[in-house]
């Protein structure tokens, strides 16, 4: 097995006085697509936010490409080659689609050029002059994913990209994510939609009460759906 691209060890995180992560341990191999699955409030999104340094306090170790991320500020983490697409999408409301798309800086070589992004996300091409927040939920999600690809980051943190979207749009997002994986991106995906997760992921990390309680390959997940549904409470 190769050296993991991301290695999280004993990660603990707090929101103010409230402890949200209680010693997370998992890793992600280069080129792999791993999902964090679990119930609401299990700590999946907090894990992504902790990797990006957005939570108030965090301890433990997050090693990315050999470098320790704990102690680094968010912009420094972004510059190591990690891009984050938050759950709320965070489209800049006062910028139009073109501006939202071209705003992120090119931090490393190898980012996707603007023309290529528009070819890959054709829905955005038609809406370039529209305000970012006037787009449909699906288009906003496409924009949120597309704009982080120009930075040159090769490791993507995607937080529930299928949330609140129509099935046809979820399918489209799934295809985009698969294409990103085939382009060599390593992806850590937070997902509650199990059917979506198993169509795109290689491996699933089950999170409960701020801890990893199980890790399943895609085939193991298919074979033991009953156990996974117990974890998710569905």
């Amino acid at each position: 097995m190769t050296e993991p691209l991301l290695k999280v060890q004993n990660l603990e995180a707090w929101y103010g006085e409230s402890k949200a992560l209680h010693g997370m341990n998992f890793d992600v191999q280069p080129g792999e697509l791993v999902t964090l699955i679990g119930r609401n409030g299990a700590g999946k999104s907090t894990t992504l936010r902790s990797i990006m340094g957005i939570v108030g306090k965090r301890t433990g170790s997050i090693r990315f490409d050999g470098a320790e991320l704990i102690g680094k500020r968010t912009f420094q983490i972004a510059r190591t080659g990690i891009a984050y697409c938050p759950e709320e999408r965070a489209i800049f409301s006062s910028l139009n689609v073109a501006e939202n798309l071209t705003l992120p800086p090119v931090l490393k070589a190898g980012g996707i050029a603007d023309a290529e992004l528009l070819r890959q996300f054709p829905n955005l091409q038609r809406r370039l002059k529209s305000q970012g927040t006037k787009l449909s939920g699906g288009e906003q999600q496409m924009l949120a994913i597309a704009r982080i690809l120009r930075t040159g980051a090769r490791f993507l943190l995607l937080d529930e990209p299928s949330e609140g979207l129509a099935p046809v749009v979820v399918k489209e997002i799934g295809e985009q994510i698969r294409q990103l994986k085939s382009q060599g991106f390593t992806i850590l995906l937070v997902e509650q939609n199990l059917s979506f997760a198993r169509k795109v992921a290689d491996r699933h990390v089950v999170v409960e009460n701020g801890k990893v309680v199980d890790t399943l390959t895609n085939s193991a997940l298919e074979a033991d759906m009953a156990r996974v549904k117990t974890y998710l409470g569905v």
């Binding site: 968010t74 912009f75 972004a78 510059r79 938050p86 800086p105």
Partner: peptide
């Protein structure tokens, strides 16, 4: 916060 997470 989002601006910072983009690397600015």
């Amino acid at each position: 916060g989002r601006v910072e997470s983009l690397g600015f």
